[in-house]
């Protein structure tokens, strides 16, 4: 027993020398971006041994809360910061957080591969997700209830979709909220009558709908070309926010690298869309 206890103590003290205060860079925020951020971190760390980067998800809202509570160095955001959030940051550390656009993303609307519907208008999407349209037959599909999949309300994707597709209205109460885009996708791939939304980077196992801006405009498929050109109606920029006071040394180098060709190549690998060179400046 004594030996055991001694072992435990030694193990604990060996593993955990107190005092090292820094994972050099902590990143927090958007779940949509967590895979991208993690890949960035992996590639960067393999090129710069000795630098440690820690990535946590939780949602864009979490990221801003953490940025303002100064619990993270970088905040990944899949929507632009709000005035209220800027104000909170100023109150917390005296300055506006600095904003960097780091990638582009198209939001896809997924349906099951067996669903005959291929395209919808933004207005139809709004009616579906606010719960006004409840049956696929109203859209020319089979007579079956529409099963809605949404995201947890911490997610930037949720807020973006709500703002840009639902025009700020509430999601229908019967929309199921899942924890990750992959879970939405998995649900839709298993649920014949399901519909969900999420980043275009995901998307194996379900059909991406073509989206029309309104009834008369052409149906656009989410792809690099349409997203970068802005033709696809549900596209957005992905951002990284930082407390300017911290932007020096390793952190600044890392931020610069993210927007370099090497960093943008990773964006493409993960399945988002790289920024066109002229958009990388800010």
């Amino acid at each position: 027993m004594k030996t055991l206890r001694a072992c435990l103590l030694i193990l604990a003290s060996a593993c955990l020398p107190g005092g090292s205060l820094l994972a050099d860079i902590t990143v927090r925020g958007s779940d949509t971006m967590v895979i991208l951020a993690q890949k960035w971190a992996e590639v960067y760390m393999s090129q710069h041994p000795g630098i440690k980067i820690q990535v946590t998800g939780g949602g864009t809202g979490t990221g801003f809360a953490a940025l303002q509570n100064q619990q993270t160095d970088l905040c990944n955001a899949s929507r632009p910061i709000r005035p209220q959030e800027i104000a909170n940051c100023i109150k917390a550390f005296g300055r506006r957080p600095r904003e960097y656009r780091v990638a582009l993303d198209g939001l896809s609307v997924y349906v099951n591969a067996a669903n005959p519907i291929n395209e919808l208008t933004l207005a139809q999407l709004e009616q579906i997700f606010t719960g006004r349209l409840r049956n696929w037959k109203d859209l020319g599909g089979p007579d079956a209830p529409i099963i809605l999949y949404s995201r947890e309300n911490s997610s930037g994707t949720y807020e973006f979709f709500k703002e840009h597709v639902l025009q700020g209205k509430d999601f229908a109460a019967h929309a199921q909220t899942l924890q990750g885009t992959a879970q939405v996708l998995q649900a839709v791939s298993r649920e014949t009558h399901g519909i969900g939304y999420g980043g275009a980077a995901y998307g194996v196992g379900a059909k991406h709908l073509h989206i029309k801006k309104d009834a008369d405009s052409p149906a656009i498929e989410p792809s690099e070309e349409t997203v970068v050109s802005g033709a696809y109606p549900i596209a957005r920029s992905l951002f990284v926010y930082v407390n300017p006071a911290l932007e020096k040394g390793d952190l600044a180098a890392y931020l610069k690298w993210i927007r370099s060709d090497a960093g943008q190549a990773v964006v493409k690998d993960v399945g988002y869309f790289p920024l066109p060179p002229d958009a990388r400046a800010r």
């Binding site: 955990l16 205060l21 967590v34 993690q38 990535v55 946590t56």
Partner: peptide, 13 residues
């Protein structure tokens, strides 16, 4: 944490 590149080094990691 969702992801960390290295093992925790201290009690505050």
């Amino acid at each position: 944490a969702y992801y960390m590149a290295s093992l925790p080094q201290s009690l505050t990691d």
